[in-house]
Design a protein around this nucleic acid. Sequence first.
DNA 1: AACATGATTCGCT
DNA 2: GCGAATCATGTTG
Length: 193
Amino acid sequence: MGAAGVVDRARALLGRTFHGHGVDLMITEVEAYGGIDDRASHAFTRTPRSEIMYGPPWRLYVYRSYGIHHCVNIVTGPTEEAAAVLLRAGRVIAGGDLARARRGQVHDDSLARGPGNLSLALGVDLKDLGTDVLGSGQVRLGDVGPGRIEISSGPRVGVSQEADRLWRFWITGERTVSAYRRSPGAPAARSAH
DNA sequence: AACATGATTCGCT
DNA sequence: GCGAATCATGTTG
């Protein structure tokens, strides 16, 4: 698997079901992070936090964001690349009451819209770090792959490095997909003029 | 030991 | 569209 391997893995996750602590959703938006080949990846520098990404694939990398939220990633491997896929949004398909209890009164489309909200809806936090999502634990991938879906792509949200790499993918037309925001720290985007 | 920085979200203008 | 909230992590002294 080359540098594009994580991209293939990211696209293949779209439309799959994912379970977290009593809630099932269909993954509708993801971002690929290329590890050692990607300055935007937390694994670009190998530290205790990013160490999980240098391990076997299909384990959870969970981190705290802005001191408030959590973000959920699936490590993709190969181990020497330390790549991972960030789950950015999903459509809740079961356990909606539980998801709403965690998220409050929000529109169904917003229950798992954005990485922090997705993590909250699924009840995933640091206790789930390192969970094998191919196992039968409280956080796991569903067995069934997607039917035919159309995929759109664009730049990743909020990253100041590699801000023009088109490594964000979502199911075309899905209303659960989060809004794009370019990082203030990123160089100005080239005008389309 | 102190400092800078976010793979964000929500409310207000 | 803009900015505050909030704190773990990594970096620097």
